[in-house]
Design a protein around this nucleic acid. Structure first.
Lengths: 360, 360
DNA sequence: CTGAAAGCGCTAACAG
DNA sequence: CTGTTAGCGCTTTCAG
């Protein structure tokens, strides 16, 4: 345990050259003699030398490190983004330091400060609950990318900064959902959400607007789900079981699956009695029974793109423009009447909306 | 973008003291004059100074960093471990660098080397596919913790190193499952797995042994699932639909849920025609329809413990002993005949095994 | 209580 | 092609 780490000086001594030569050999400088390099490489292996990144980054003023903040690693959707991000970063020799913000501004500030202490060359924030300008100020001069910023002030997605923001096009997604539901013949459509963050507000608003466009004067009944992730909000479930709207659009898949489970306990059948829609297309959406109609966000890709944007910003010194990524409506059983026979096949909706796919 | 970072020298200059004093003030040395400290703190805030961790760790020979390798952030079970690990690390002021090994030895070696370059004070490996001694050698002198090591040589869980290993007690879990199935009246029991890693081999073996103990001579029919995570292995599904074993114990919940979904397509009812058991108790297990009987591992806690063990090893210089954590059998609908009525309630098994709970 | 100075391990001029 | 040397930003003796 108390062994010191091998340093470049040890290697230099071992093969009778200067530390500069060892450094150059390891950095693949072309001017080093092939035989010298060979000796160095051999000594490195023999001694088990591994360069000290801290020392290196101190002099080159770059850490080859990206910081990634996510709300909560427990959520599969965040995990997928992490996977994409880490993959892209690793492909370019960057390491990633990870922090969970838990939707708490204080924790998020601490995480950001930690990234700055680590002098991360770039920082990505998923679901940040802080104002974007505050973040920019804190991390300056490192580039930041916001993925699905959730600061309430961002509701409507109009006020994302012009560069360095990545978003799925929730609004288009919700329009497609509403259109699909209406075309399928559902009349009373409700929304279940309630986190109060930007995307919750935006999604609800998008549903309301789309609904009003086709049926002026209609108001959107909204259920406020207060339970934590995965947990059923029994009050909401009971209310929906009682009200029996034709369809409920949920904030995300987790909520939708919880709701479906809760409704089953109440003896309410989905989609026959109440249709349910989710958001995200987590892997379980298609394994649920009934399989869940949802909006797929390209999450892994968003993670990859976040890293790629940072890498480009680091290299070029200028942050790429913000992007809005397309989502896909995936129609599955939870919004399509199944035949009476248990285990029966799904029936296609009359006319699937544009930009939608039918699954299976 | 091109602004230099503020250094401790800038702060010193700004308040007319030496860098040593600034350093001491920031490190809360008791001997600094209260008024001096005040001036320093003020300057720090005014200038937005954030210490450079690389510089600091170079001199103190500690990085306040933990490395965490997981197979794949996409998997919810791994995400939960990450959450626990990061939480514990953060609570003690450590940052975590994350890498995905993807069950690939080469990637895992690269990740480990990266941790060593970062001079992580401790390293945790989830589902490592490398021999434990090789890993120890590579990371020396840093402490390593193995969580659910998956190197095939570890099958049977006899050969985990005596210190620094964390494992769920899969074997006890499988015994409880088999016992539960037999007591519930299932006779032909099959196993579906096939990753070939340590826990797959061990779980299968545990099932086979337990079965043989109660019915000598019985052989365990095994289905080899070759599809990737989440994807149905259509051949296996078809085979099970044809063979109709009374119950299938799956390697993990993902496989179990895929299987259930596949069987539904074949018109095979779970549990009426075939009962299905998973492993892990991912959040979706209890939202599935039928709700999935499974073995719960304390994953978040395992993450926390992994970090705690490393922290203790860092502090005391000696690694705690390996631990085997208890698991819980959670009996849900997928192994209990439901009433004919759709949406019907579950019926309790005659005598739930020890260490098992009934859910809901 | 504070300052000067010596590194931590490495890279990058600058000489040779 | 290789060696010498001056730092990178910080902590920590050692003197005052």
């Amino acid at each position: 345990m108390r062994t010191q780490h091998i340093t470049i000086a040890d290697v230099a001594r071992a093969c009778g050259v200067s530390v500069a030569t060892v450094s150059r050999a390891l950095l693949d400088y072309p001017q080093v003699n092939a035989r010298t390099r060979e000796r160095v490489v051999r000594a490195v292996r023999a001694l088990g030398y591994v360069p000290n990144r801290a020392a290196r980054s101190l002099v080159v003023r770059a850490t080859q490190t990206l910081g990634l903040l996510i709300p909560d690693a427990t959520d599969p959707i965040h995990g997928q983004l992490v996977a994409g991000f880490e993959q892209e970063a690793a492909a370019y020799g960057y390491i990633v330091i990870l922090a969970n913000g838990l939707d708490d501004p204080a924790r998020e500030r601490r995480a950001i400060e930690s990234f700055v202490m680590s002098r991360a060359d770039g920082i990505a924030l998923l679901g940040s609950v802080l104002p974007q300008r505050e973040v920019r100020r804190r991390v300056r001069p490192s580039p930041v990318v916001f993925v699905d910023g959730e600061h309430p002030g961002l509701a409507g997605y109009q006020s994302d900064l012009p560069t360095g923001c990545i978003r799925a096009d929730d609004i288009a997604g919700m329009q497609a959902v509403v259109q699909h539901l209406l075309e399928t013949g559902f009349r009373s459509i409700a929304y279940a959400g309630g986190t109060g963050n930007a995307s919750d507000l935006t999604r609800r608003e998008a549903v309301a607007k789309t609904l009003q466009r086709s049926r002026p004067g209609a108001t959107l009944r909204t259920y406020v789900w207060r339970a934590a992730d995965w947990d059923p909000d029994t009050a909401v479930v009971a209310a929906i079981a009682r009200d029996r709207p034709d369809a409920v659009i949920c904030y995300d898949d987790k909520m939708a699956l919880s709701l479906i489970d809760g409704l089953r306990t109440h003896g309410v059948r989905v989609p026959r009695d109440v249709a349910v829609v989710g958001f995200d297309d987590i892997p379980f959406a298609r394994l649920a029974n009934p399989r869940l109609t949802t909006i797929a966000q390209p999450v892994v890709d968003m993670g990859r793109q976040a890293a790629a944007m940072l890498l480009r910003a680091i290299q070029k010194g200028t942050m790429p423009r913000s992007v809005r990524l397309p989502v896909r409506l995936i129609v599955r059983e939870s919004t399509v009447h199944t035949s009476a026979r248990p285990g029966g096949r799904s029936v296609a909706p009359s006319r699937p909306g544009r930009a939608s796919v039918r699954d299976r």
